[in-house]
Amino acid sequence: MTSNDRVITVLLADDENLIRSALASMLSLEADLEIIAEAADGTEALAKARALKPDVAVLDLQMPGLDGVELAELLAREVPDCRTIIVTSHARPGYLKRALAVGARGFLPKTATGATLADVIRRVADGGRYVDPDLAADAISAGDSPLTPREADVLEAAADGAPLEEVARRVSLAAGTTRNYLSSAVTKLGARNRFDACTIARQRGWI
């Protein structure tokens, strides 16, 4: 890298400390990438992005508070020069479509290599886009999900029949809010109950 080359500033947001630290260490080896902030949840990431205005924010899909898609939507409005990339270990087709709709510029699985992520950061910083080909194919074949990201999260958390209070704990929401999300998901899917809703959503690749 020469003195005239651009250094891309990056914010990392992931509630799994080990994964976030590993990503930070890996990306810091790239001469043209600078990790200027890390965040353990969506709310913290939003505050740091507002203050530091990174070039690129790499966001975990599932985080407490604001999830990656919700955060990408807010950043598109409030920090428009910060481009967003979402990484996930739960690649639901519905999330991909929602992420792209709200302005995310990249979407890839956590199984991607460090070199791939670094290249995607560069591409997105230069104004391009990147969607993992396998995730894109799955999204096309699955059709459009009527569920919001939160409804999908809550429905998946309830799939094993856990009590409402346990489901609420898993998704970091109040019990009443969790019940409302489940009820909405059941209604949207035309299901008999939450278990039927889980079956329908899984068959269609939405959770």
Rank of each mutant, 00 (worst) to 15 (best):
V186M: 05
R204V: 00
E166V: 14
A137D: 14
R170G: 01
T88P: 04
L117N: 05
E156R: 12
L71E: 03
T113C: 07
P163E: 10
R194Y: 11
R83E: 14
G176M: 02
A139G: 03
K53V: 14
L135D: 09
I85S: 09
T187I: 05
I85T: 13
R92N: 10
E165G: 00
G127C: 04
L75P: 08
T199Y: 00
E38S: 13
V69I: 15
T43L: 14
R150W: 09
L117A: 05
L155E: 06
A31P: 07
V69Q: 01
D144H: 13
R123C: 10
L66G: 02
L71Y: 10
A104Y: 01
D67L: 07
A191D: 04
T187E: 15
A57Y: 11
I140R: 15
L96T: 10
T116D: 13
L155N: 04
D119F: 03
P163I: 03
I200R: 13
P146C: 04
V102G: 07
D144P: 04
A57I: 12
A159R: 15
D119H: 08
D138P: 00
L164D: 03
D138I: 03
R123G: 08
V167R: 00
A201W: 02
F107A: 06
D55C: 04
R105N: 12
A31R: 15
D134E: 14
H90W: 10
L29Y: 02
E30H: 12
A22K: 02
D144E: 15
L173P: 01
L71T: 03
G65A: 05
A51P: 00
C82E: 05
V7G: 02
L27S: 12
D55S: 12
R83G: 02
T113Q: 11
P54F: 12
D32P: 03
A13N: 08
V87F: 10
V58D: 09
R194I: 04
T9G: 11
A57P: 08
D14R: 09
I207N: 03
V87R: 14
E44F: 00
I19L: 15
V79F: 04
A45Q: 12
T148G: 05
V87M: 15
V124D: 10
A47P: 01
V171Y: 02
G176N: 10
Y130I: 06
V186L: 03
R192P: 01
A125I: 02
A162T: 01
A157Q: 06
M26D: 12
E34Q: 15
V124A: 08
S25D: 12
G68Y: 07
D138S: 14
G205S: 06
P109T: 07
Y181C: 08
W206M: 09
R179M: 06
S89I: 13
L59T: 04
R83V: 09
L173K: 07
N17C: 00
R204T: 03
P146D: 06
R194P: 00
P64E: 10
D55Y: 03
L59S: 05
P149I: 07
E165Q: 02
C198N: 11
A185H: 05
V186I: 15
A39F: 05
